[in-house]
Structures are given as C-alpha cells and as structure tokens.
Design a binder for these strands. Structure first.
Length: 411
RNA sequence: GGACGGGUGGGUGAGUGGCUAAAACCAGCAGACUGUAAAUCUGCCGCUCCUUGCGGGCUACGGAGGUUCGAAUCCUCCCCCGUCCA
C-alpha cells in the first residue's frame, strides 16, 4: 500500500476541485495531499449518507461523483451508511422534525442504496461502513461526555434552527444531537476529508471541531453545490417531484433531462458529468455564438448521463426515441402495452384511462378529454362519453397528454 | 404549572353563522406557440354518478361531541405547536 503512485499535488487539486462549492480550509487540503504524496499513504475521504429513502436520484450523485474523483486519484473512498443516524433524522434543510425511521426501513433502504451507489463508485476500492457499528453501542455516559464538547449557542447559530425559532416552529431536542453523533463517525473513521452538500456545511464543521476535541488533526470540509431540480428553482428532491431517479428507465431519464432549462444545463454539466471545466466553458461559448444549437448540447448531456447508468446502447436508443416522439411527433415504437380481454359491448374511455394509463381519478380523466389531451390512433377525442368497442379483437394507440402513449390490445 | 397566540385544500394564506368545494398567490396538469427548454397566452386544478347540466350525490377547514333550519365560523372537552412567566 505504501508504494502508491500519486499524481502531482497540483494536478490532483485541479481535478478534485471541479464543481466544488467550498473547501474549508483549502490550504489544509493541499497540505494533506502533499503529506500523502510524501508518505505514500492515501487520504481517507468519506461521504456519509442516511438511507432515508429507498432510491437515490441525480442530486445525490453530485457528492458521490466527488468521492469518486478522490478515488480516481488513488485515495481511499469511504462510503458511510448512516443506518443509526437515519433513525435520528438530519435537521438540515427541513422545516419540521422528521418522523424517525424504523430499523427495518433503514436496513431495506441501505441495501438498495449500495447497489445504486456502485454505478458511480468502484466497488472493489470502496470501504463501506455503517455508523450503527459505533453509535449503536455508545453509553449514555459517552453521549453526555460528547455533548460536553459543544456549546448550545453555537448549535443555535445554524440557519435551520434559527429560522425555525424565528417562525415559531418546533425543534426537538434530539435534533441538536445529530451533528454531534455523526461527528463520532468522523472520529472513528479518522477521516482526512469529508464530502457533503453545501447544506451540510454546519454538520461538517462540527465534525471537524469534535475530531480535534478527540485528538485528531481535523478533517477538511469539502462541500458541493446543491443540484437544482427539473423545475429550475428548488433543490432536487423526491418530495418536490422535480427529480431524476437513477434507476429510472433510459427513455424517462433522457426526457426529463431534456426538459430542464438551457441555463440549468450548465450546472448539470458541471455537477453530473466528468467533463473537465474548460470543455464545458467551450460548449457554452459555442451555444452562445450560435454555432451549436442548445438542444444539441442538451441532448449530449442527456446522452452522457443516461450512459452512466444504463450504458452506451440504451443511451443511444433513448436519444433516438426522443427524436422520434418529440421532434418528429410520432408515437414511440415501443409504447407501453396493455392487454384487455375481449368481451361483448363497450367500455367507457374514461374508465380505460384510469385502468391503463395511470390516471388517478375519473375527474382527472374527464378533464384531460375535455382539454383535448386524449387521442386514439392520432384522432383527438373530445367527448367524455366516448366508448371503446371491446367486442372484437384489435389494437389501438392511446395517447394522454404529451408523454403518455399506450398500445391497447383487445384479445 | 400560569397567561397569551395559533392549527384552513400539495404549499403560503384569506375567510368569524347561509351568497363557501372554500378568495388570492405558488406549485401541478392540459391546450396554443416551440427546441417536450424558457417566456407568453388560454383553460383546468376534492371525489363520484349519470340524462355531461351554470346537473345530482358525497367528502373537506387538528379530533370528538353539542347549539342551530343552516357551522371552517358559536359552545364544551381533548390533541398538537409556539411565545412569555416560573
């Protein structure tokens, strides 16, 4: 292990710095890199994630990709699963106390996380740890001692708590414990660098402080910008519905990325691809000068991202489908299939929409028809009472809105 | 423990006895225009039934009861949140 060959420090810094929001303190990172180059000992870089949901989306991949960058440079990437801290709930960025997760939920989530994480990280080179390993066995004595290392005023300085106090919103006491307990992660892992989104800055700085209280040198806090969601305004999050899940089908993923605004595309290039910064600057210049159509640039982005998760072939196919459906305005050549039993008589189109096309309610289905969003075999249907003949076998292409295509087979 | 303020649809938030499925704004959806971009314009935006009508029924303003011809609005009890005092 000691004969690690590292690239020159300047080169490493440049590579790793891409897209970073803040590196606190930056000269300390340089110092640590120089040290490691000298001793041949890789840095320990970690990213802690609470498995609060079963799936991860592109927003989560920003920090993962950064961890990968350190891995690319030969450092040790530690992926920490906060199976214990998930049961406390991170107060960051939430305006209310999170409902605690059960052990079972956390375990189930942790399992699906890992599989998804390895789409970015190199499985063989990643050290995976769970913080229940040490947090689960702490005594109340340990906790009290830990709390003695931090001051309430400093805790209340953080924006999340302050704004909740201002707005007369509740803060549960255990939420104060979150950054302190996760600091133990940093202590146990003896990390040199911790990666997190900018909203984690407070937590990371507490970790650094506590590490020093426990006799370590103190990690570098490395923050990444928060990925803005598809709406172009708010952070990407599942609850806002403005996200792209990394397990989503290639076509779906491609389409969603195409729907982002032109302006947003550049930060996606920065945070979601391995394109070096100068290349992105050049692309941007080409679009501005008119020599590259923004749609082309966006399609390339979508292609690259889909490729990361589904491979080259699926990405190319997704692109072709996209062009076919939206540029050429044709039905996709593999719309969702739905089979219906042949039976005498007819069925209301409204009912079929609910049954097959994922329309949540009858009112919603009627609304779509009234607004001219529903087509059968390319013919717009305006009558909410429209009936479909189920008495003989056949096939029809149903369209509801811009994106939903459905091939109905009566058999 | 005491005094006070508050809990309304996905969000913000108006509404203090009927005209309120509940203003306004945001988000969302659909149509037009386009590059499924943005911007813009138009419409929709609880559920359900049919004879699709400015139609009928049901559900909804923290919870449970009550007053009333009629309650988000008044009363009682309970739950939850916050502020101040201890």
């Amino acid at each position: 292990m000691s004969d690690h060959k590292f690239k020159p420090v300047a080169e490493q810094l440049a590579y790793v710095r891409k897209g970073a929001a803040e590196i606190i303190p930056e000269d300390e990172l340089k110092q640590k890199l120089e040290n490691s180059a000298k001793t041949g000992k890789p840095l320990r870089v970690y990213l802690g994630v609470d498995p609060t949901a079963p799936d991860i989306h592109l927003g989560h991949t920003v920090v993962l990709r950064k961890l990968k960058h350190f891995q690319d440079m030969g450092h040790t990437a530690v992926f920490l699963i906060g199976d214990f801290s998930a049961m406390i709930g991170d107060p960051t960025g939430v305006s209310e106390t999170r409902p605690p997760l059960s052990r079972e939920q956390v375990d189930a989530n942790a399992k699906t996380y890992l599989a998804q994480v390895y789409k970015i990280l190199d499985r063989d080179k990643t050290e995976v740890r769970y913080n229940s390993e040490w947090l689960g066995t702490m005594s109340s004595y340990d906790v009290v001692r830990l709390c003695g290392h931090y001051r309430l005023a400093r805790m209340l300085e953080r924006e999340d708590f302050r704004s909740r106090l201002d707005k007369n919103l509740p803060i549960a006491v255990h939420e104060l414990l979150y950054p302190l307990l996760t600091a133990i992660d940093a202590v146990k892992l003896e990390s040199d660098v911790e990666i997190g989104a900018t909203e984690q800055k407070f937590n990371l700085l507490v970790h650094r402080d506590i590490q020093r209280e426990y006799g370590l040198s103190g990690e570098v806090a490395f923050t990444m910008p928060i990925l803005v969601g598809l709406d172009g305004e708010r952070k990407m999050s599942k609850s806002l519905g403005n996200y792209v899940g990394i397990t989503e089908a290639p076509g779906e993923m491609f389409g969603k990325i195409m729907s982002i605004s032109d302006e947003l595309m550049w930060s996606y290039y920065e945070l979601l691809t391995d394109f070096p910064s100068p290349a992105i600057v050049r692309l941007r210049e080409d679009v501005r000068s008119g020599s590259l159509h923004p749609m082309e640039a966006k399609m390339q982005l979508a292609h690259v991202i889909v490729r990361d998760f589904h491979g080259e072939e699926a990405a190319t196919q997704a692109k072709e489908q996209f062009q076919r459906v939206f540029r050429d305005r044709q039905a996709p050549d593999n719309p969702t299939q739905f089979r219906l039993q042949q039976k005498p008589g007819t069925e209301k189109l409204v009912k079929l929409l609910i049954q097959c096309a994922d329309i949540p309610s009858r009112s919603e289905a009627e609304r779509l028809i009234k607004q001219g969003a529903v087509e059968i075999d390319g013919q717009r249907v305006n009558d909410v009472r429209h009936e479909i003949d189920l008495s003989k076998p056949g096939e029809l292409l149903l369209r509801a809105g811009k994106k939903k295509f459905l091939r109905l087979t009566i058999e």
